[in-house]
């Protein structure tokens, strides 16, 4: 049973609006799926349907062989879910809140304490366990929500914007945590932070207007960028016209783009025709000291550019 989560023709309509339109995909054990899309694309709605909070208009989700329409409680028991905004009861302390969750999840006595202790340690909230949640900072609140989601070591983990509101160190910790848990779980994280996809995801799906527009590994997605295999060179600004002419004269180069930098430097990017590697040709130009080239790098493709292309052109 490597396929732990399978979404089948899931649709949700709110009146005339197709919030989610015939979405199908599946997630295997060990996969971390980045769920991307602009605000309002249907990410949260899809997650709400998988977790049994919203009833789909049509289609269904199957989690560990349980259909969410037929056995919602069994599905909910398998899933750890961090809803958008990490809601938690503000008057409770994290200790009491996690105690409540652990009770509902079926733990009691020493096992319950061990579960709470482990979850609190993993997300590093041990120091605030006895402060009311509404007195905590945004970062701590988010981590209390995460602790709640991972408390029962679920097989399927669904996190709606898990790093929203965290500082860079906390983001790094949460990503490390996700990676460490990934091996024996199926994880979906929604995000609009594209660096996160590179950092933790083994696969990414981009949805726009309720439809899946791209599905692949981060590398496959990046390969769709016009920056894929483009080469950027950093050089003295005065040498730009010469180098640009040289680059354009190469048959494999489609076009060039110039960005002015600081300290009399500029950056010229040469785009490859059809995304083929062009570094070999360009390195010839870079070797000539007259061209004053200080740095050469091959672009792997820019996810943000792919993201914009696939989510905007469908307007």
């Amino acid at each position: 049973m490597s396929e732990m989560l399978s979404i089948r023709n899931l649709s949700k309509r709110f009146g005339p609006i197709h919030a989610v339109d015939n979405v199908s995909f599946s997630v295997k054990r060990g996969e971390v799926l980045g769920f991307l899309g602009p605000n309002g694309a249907g990410k949260s709605t899809t997650m709400k349907m998988i977790t049994g909070f919203l009833a789909p208009t049509s289609g269904t989700a199957v989690v560990c062989d349980h259909d969410v329409l037929k056995e919602p409680v069994a599905v909910k028991a398998k899933i750890g879910y961090l809803p958008e905004g990490a809601p938690a009861y503000p008057d409770m302390t994290p200790a009491a809140f996690l105690g409540f969750i652990a009770g509902i999840r079926g733990y009691s006595g020493g096992k319950k304490d061990a579960r709470i202790e482990r979850a609190a340690r993993l997300v590093q909230i041990e120091d605030v366990m006895n402060q009311p949640i509404d007195t905590l900072s945004k970062g701590f609140k988010r981590r209390v929500g995460l602790a709640q989601a991972i408390l029962h070591d679920p097989e399927v983990l669904i996190l709606d914007e898990p790093t929203d509101g965290l500082d860079p160190n906390q983001k790094h910790e949460v990503r490390t945590l996700i990676q460490n848990m990934a091996r024996d779980k199926a994880i979906i994280i929604s995000t609009h932070i594209l660096e996160e996809v590179d950092a933790v995801c083994t696969r990414a799906i981009i949805i726009s207007r309720g439809r899946v527009v791209l599905d692949g590994t981060p590398d496959q997605l990046a390969a769709r960028s016009r920056y894929h295999n483009a080469v950027s060179v950093v050089l003295k600004a005065r040498a730009v016209p010469v180098v640009e002419t040289l680059l354009r004269s190469l048959p494999a180069v489609a076009e060039t783009e110039k960005v002015d930098g600081m300290d009399g430097l500029a950056c010229v990017t040469a785009f490859a025709k059809g995304g083929r590697p062009i570094i070999a040709e360009i390195s010839q130009i870079a070797r000539d000291p007259a061209n004053t080239i200080e740095e050469v790098r091959v672009e792997r493709g820019r996810l943000d550019e792919v993201f914009r292309t696939v989510t905007e052109t469908r307007g």
Binding site: T51, Y81, P83, P87, Y89, P90, I104
Partner: peptide, 14 residues
């Protein structure tokens, strides 16, 4: 209002 209903009703309870 506070959104905790989403947390509450996605716990394994009826």
């Amino acid at each position: 209002k506070s959104g905790t209903i989403e947390l509450f009703l996605t716990l394994p309870i009826s």
